[in-house]
Amino acid sequence: MVPKCRSCGEFRPSTSGSLQRSRPGCPRRRKYTHHSFVSPVCRFQKRNARASKEFTFETNSMIAIRPGPGGVREQDGYIVKLDRRIKTALDETRLLLLGSQVLFGFLLESVFQNAFETLSRFSQYLVCAALALMVLSLGCLIAPSMQHRIVENGQSTARLEEATTSLAEWGLVSFLASLGLAMFIVFERIFGEVAGATAGAVSAALTGFFWFGFAWLIGKRGRQLMEEIAPTPLSTKIEQMLTEARVIIPGCQALLGFQLIAMLTHAFDELPFDAKIMHAAGLCLVAIAMILLMTPAALHREAFGGNDSETFLRLGSGFIIAASLPLALGISADVYVVFLKITHAIALSIAASVALLLAMLLLWYLYPIWLRANRA
């Protein structure tokens, strides 16, 4: 039996109904045509007729903008969603910390090397200055993770992205200055003061050009902020929390490794007994910080089976916030040891250690707590 079209009432030789709807006069075809999904190609063709408009399409992770014919291209590339931009910012901060830990470790270990005594007195004092700058750089680079945990409670916000950018820039400035001083120190010992000054100035200028000059030349075309009111998904919060643990760990591993090596050198044996105690205390504090930072990953595997959970998010955030305190205390303890070995002045060493400890506590705890209190 030939089926009858339910829309137009005519008998059409089809059992699926597709041929009836393919007839130009079929009401169901007209309804389907006017009220159904329009493919992206059709949308592009329609918008193509308006030269001043742009064709946009959105995916799960980014929005791409393409100009229509005759239109002005105001944006190059992609405007990435806020969650992904925060994750990228944290990864970039981690990359900066990986580079910083090398110089930080060199400055800590240099005072325990046999050739350190051959440096000029001026170069030895520059080691103190370079070390202080590197501590400030580490403080600025770790600070965004602390603000994300304390202020934003793991939520992705445009304020956090701006703060991460600003703190990373300040951290790079301190790193740049410390690198220039380190280059002067090593070149001055071998080739003299003129070569050392030239090497330090050239390295600082070259670093500044690549880190800041290029950004100034390119401009801020890719830094449009789009504040999103949607809450950050739990899986994204956990991923960002684990990334922040990986951000802080490089500072721990550099310090812990060089602290262990320093205790096996002859220069360490010549330190006063109180400096040895301070160094041992700093070693224990950094080891505690390392244990706390590695705990979230272990818990995620063993207790939660890799599944997302609000309980795990709260525990992991608590471990990260708690780990930064012994890390700051351990760094300040080693600053005291290095300053004491170079200057032989207890008062100056204590002042430098306390000042840098307060700077780290201000960046990691006091300022984020103040921001959170004012927001509430």
Rank of each mutant, 00 (worst) to 15 (best):
A204N: 01
A197S: 13
S178G: 15
L160F: 09
A177K: 02
L176Y: 01
S166M: 13
A195Y: 06
S156L: 02
S156K: 01
V194R: 15
S203D: 00
F191A: 15
E193W: 08
A163L: 08
G171T: 03
W170D: 10
V202E: 08
I185L: 03
A204F: 02
V186P: 02
L176G: 03
S156Q: 06
G196A: 02
F184W: 03
G171F: 00
L172N: 09
A201C: 05
F175V: 07
A163W: 14
G154M: 05
S174A: 12
A168M: 10
S178T: 02
A158Y: 05
G196I: 01
E161S: 11
F191K: 08
G192V: 05
G192K: 01
S156R: 04
E169Q: 15
G200T: 00
A163S: 13
S178Q: 05
A197G: 06
A163P: 04
G154Q: 01
N153W: 07
A163I: 08
F175I: 06
W170E: 13
F187N: 08
L176C: 11
L179S: 10
N153L: 13
Q155S: 11
L181F: 03
L167R: 14
G180R: 00
E193G: 05
L176K: 07
G154H: 05
E169P: 07
N153A: 14
R159T: 10
R189P: 09
A158K: 03
N153C: 13
E169M: 14
R189K: 09
V202I: 15
G171A: 04
Q155M: 13
S203V: 06
E193T: 12
F184T: 01
I185M: 02
T164H: 06
S174N: 11
V194I: 13
S203E: 08
R189V: 08
A158W: 05
A201M: 05
A158I: 09
E193D: 09
A201Q: 03
I190Q: 15
Q155A: 12
F184N: 03
T157K: 02
V194Q: 14
R189G: 06
N153K: 15
T198K: 11
L172G: 11
G200Y: 01
L172M: 14
E162D: 10
F184E: 07
M183Q: 08
A182M: 10
A197Y: 07
F175L: 11
M183E: 01
E161A: 10
R159L: 11
A177V: 00
S178C: 05
A199W: 02
A204L: 07
M183N: 10
L181K: 09
A204V: 01
W170V: 15
R189M: 12
A168W: 04
V194W: 11
A205C: 04
A177R: 00
S174Q: 11
A163D: 12
A168L: 07
F191H: 13
A201Y: 00
A163N: 15
L172Q: 11
R189H: 10
T198Y: 12
E161C: 04
G200M: 01
A177M: 02
F184M: 05
V202M: 07
Q155Y: 04
L167P: 03
R159K: 12
L167A: 07
T164C: 14
